[in-house]
Amino acid sequence: MTVFFGVFLLTLLLIVAIAIVRADNLFVAVMLGGIFSLLMATIFFLLDAPDVALTEAAVGAGISTVLYLAALALTAEREKRHTVHQIKALVVVTTTALLVIFATFDNVQFGDPTAPVHVHVGPWYLENTQRYMDIPNVVTAILGSFRGYDTLGELFVVFTAGIGVLFLLGTRPKKDTEAAETLIPQQSETSEGLRNYLIPRLTGRLLVPIILLFGLYVQFHGEYSPGGGFQAGAIIAAGIILYALLEGETAALRVVPQWMLMALMAGGALLYGMVGVVGMLLGGQFLDYSVLADNPVTGQQLGILLIELGVGMTVSGVLLSIFHAFAARDKY
């Protein structure tokens, strides 16, 4: 039955993907992108991968729609039609597609127990997580400790992406500021956001603290249930973005000012690195948490908690900075 469900969802996914490519109205493409993400999360869930599905839920459904729309507000809604047929591009795409299809013949069977992923290092993780860390969620153990270097790298990729976006969008065009102010009458703060929409505003205000609380739960409960720093950072960012949508950007920047976003971005990455360095100072190796406490198991748990906190801080800081960079551009 799982196979049947999976095939059905993948068929829908294919239809949506083709429709996204075919759509020349970019708003429609963004909406279909939302559906794509919902379908993808259901498929991940069906395949028993709740951590990935939670990431898809937090990033795909909330944040990417918001960021796409913020980008779309800066540009035209319709895509320019290309009437030129490019033979070279067609050849390249067809060749790649054929190669990929050819490669799938070597793919392992669905659920094959002798597949390399199930006989290589995976069983070792499953057997030894209890012994070394004593936490139920093996995914968190692998991400946080066994593969701590990879996660550190990922975190710095996120950090670098944030810096890149800020370099591109964060500066204000000085010359045009006066011209823009005369063209578009500056909104007073009372009309920003959705202040004049009573029902969405009331419901939204109720939900903001709940989303933040849920984000903290995902952050600190990541060792016992699906979740962790990445998901929590995205959920917390979504909560603050909801506040910004409701009350206007100025109010949101008063709650979480720019310097705090920078501190979150850099502080999270720094915290992760520091945990590694402190481990070295205490006589272990870089990112070896066992030396952080008297008992190696407690040390591992403490290390994982700290680095997940660092990941959450950086991810939420980066996502919020990107959002504010786009939203501030909107005014020019």
Binding site: Y197, I199, P200, T203, G204, L206
Partner: peptide, 9 residues
């Protein structure tokens, strides 16, 4: 809470 609010909006 959310579904009717979204429809209303």
């Amino acid at each position: 809470l959310t579904s009717p609010t979204a429809t209303n909006a």
